[in-house]
C-alpha cells in the first residue's frame, strides 16, 4: 500500500483519494475507496465548536469557571476517562464496543496496588499492565474466534471482572504510597494551576494514536474494517487479526488509564470507576466517532472527554443539581449520535 494514495486531513481521520490509484494491487484500493466513502469529513469541528460554546456559556454565567486553576482542574479530571476513551475509540472504529474497559482498568489497578502493598511497586505496575492486556485480549479473542457480538462479550467480561476485583481484594482498597505509581498526579505547579504529568501523557498518547491511525497501514485497515469488514477481507486484510490487535492495544491504554487514576486518587479501590465504561463511550460519541465504525478519530475523542468533564464542572459551578447534569450529558449523546446518523445516511446513500 502506498501512502501517497491517501490524503490526510487534520481531523484525526484518513481519507482515501477518490481517483483511481492506478497502481497495484488495484483491487485493494477499489475496496478501500468504496469503504472510505463513509470516511468523508465527519470533522472534529463539530465537537470543537460545541466545546467552545459550552466554555463561553459557563464563563459568562458563572464567576468562578474561567480561571486558570479551574481549567487545569478540568484537565486533571479528564485524564482517566480520556485515556480509557482512546482505547474505546479504536474499538468503536472497528464497529465494536467495550463495556468492560473500566472493569479491566480497575482489576489492573487493584492487582498492581496489592503487589505494591507488599513492597514492589515496579513489579505491581508490570503485572497490572499484563492484567489489562490479557483481559482486553480475551475480549478480542471471544469476538474474533467465537463471533460473539462485542456488546455481549464485553458485557459478560464487565460483570465477571467487576466481581473478580471485589473477590481479589475482599472488597478492600489499597492506599498507594509509591511515588512512581502516583507520579502522574504531580507536575509543575503555578499557584493553584498544576500541569500534571498525567495531562501531558494524555496529550502524548492521543498524538501517538492519531499518528498510528492516520499514518500507518494498520490505521487504514482499522478504518477500512469499520466501514466494511467484507470489503476489507476481499482486499486481503486480515480482518480478525486487525480486530484482535485493536482490542489488545486498547488494553495498553486501559493500563495507562489505571496509572492516571492512581495519580489522581492514590488508592486502588475496587468500587471506583463503576461507570467509566459509559463515560468513555460518551466521550467517544460526543467526539464524533461513529458507533457504526469507520468514521471519527482520537482528536474528537480528546475533545469529547473534555466536554463530559466541562459539563459536570461547569454545571456544578453554576449550582445546578447533579441530576440535571446527567440529563444535559444525555442530551448531548443523543444529539451527537443523531448528527452521526444523519450524516452517515447522507454519505452512504
Amino acid at each position: 500500500m502506498q501512502t501517497s494514495d491517501r490524503v490526510r486531513t487534520d481531523t484525526g481521520q484518513a481519507k482515501i483519494d477518490a481517483e483511481p490509484a492506478g497502481s497495484p494491487p488495484a483491487g485493494l484500493f477499489a475496496g478501500l475507496r468504496r469503504a472510505a466513502t463513509g470516511l468523508f469529513a465527519y470533522p472534529v469541528t463539530g465537537p470543537l465548536v460545541a466545546l467552545i460554546l459550552i466554555l463561553i456559556v459557563f464563563s459568562v454565567t458563572t464567576s468562578t469557571f474561567l480561571n486558570a486553576g479551574n481549567l487545569s482542574l478540568i484537565f486533571q479530571q479528564s485524564v482517566v476517562v480520556g485515556t480509557l476513551a482512546l482505547g474505546q475509540t479504536l474499538i468503536i472504529l472497528v464497529s465494536g464496543i467495550d463495556l468492560a474497559n473500566g472493569a479491566i482498568m480497575v482489576l489492573g489497578m487493584v492487582v498492581a496496588g496489592s503487589i505494591a502493598a507488599n513492597g514492589d511497586p515496579m513489579l505491581g505496575m508490570l503485572v497490572g499492565l499484563a492484567v489489562c492486556i490479557v483481559a482486553a485480549s480475551i475480549n478480542g479473542l471471544i469476538i474474533t474466534r467465537f463471533r460473539l457480538p462485542p456488546f455481549i462479550a464485553t458485557l459478560g467480561l464487565f460483570t465477571i471482572l467487576t466481581a473478580a476485583a471485589r473477590l481479589y481484594t475482599q472488597s478492600r482498597s489499597y492506599p498507594i504510597n509509591s511515588d512512581f505509581m502516583t507520579i502522574l498526579g504531580e507536575g509543575p505547579s503555578f499557584g493553584l494551576v498544576t500541569i500534571t504529568y498525567g495531562s501531558m501523557l494524555w496529550i502524548a498518547l492521543t498524538l501517538v494514536l492519531a499518528y498510528a491511525l492516520n499514518q500507518t497501514a494498520w490505521g487504514v485497515r482499522v478504518y477500512a474494517i469499520g466501514n466494511s469488514p467484507a470489503a476489507a477481507r476481499l482486499n486481503g486484510v486480515n480482518v480478525n487479526g486487525v480486530i484482535f490487535s485493536v482490542y489488545a492495544l486498547a488494553g495498553v491504554f486501559y493500563a495507562f488509564a489505571g496509572w492516571q487514576a492512581l495519580g489522581r486518587t492514590p488508592i486502588a479501590d475496587p468500587s471506583g470507576y463503576q461507570i467509566a465504561n459509559l463515560d468513555s463511550i460518551t466521550a467517544v460519541v460526543i467526539g464524533g466517532t461513529s458507533l457504526f465504525g469507520g468514521r471519527g478519530g482520537v482528536a474528537g475523542t480528546f475533545i469529547g472527554a473534555l466536554i463530559v468533564v466541562v459539563l459536570k464542572n461547569g454545571l456544578t459551578q453554576a449550582g445546578i443539581d447533579s441530576l440535571y447534569q446527567q440529563i444535559a450529558t444525555g442530551f448531548l449523546v443523543i444529539l451527537a449520535v443523531g448528527a452521526d446518523q444523519y450524516l452517515g445516511r447522507g454519505q452512504r446513500a
Partner: peptide, 15 residues
Amino acid sequence: NVETGQSSMENLLSA
C-alpha cells in the same frame, strides 16, 4: 466512593 468524592469536592471547592 473515593473517586467520585474527590472530583465532586474539587468542583465544589472550585466554585
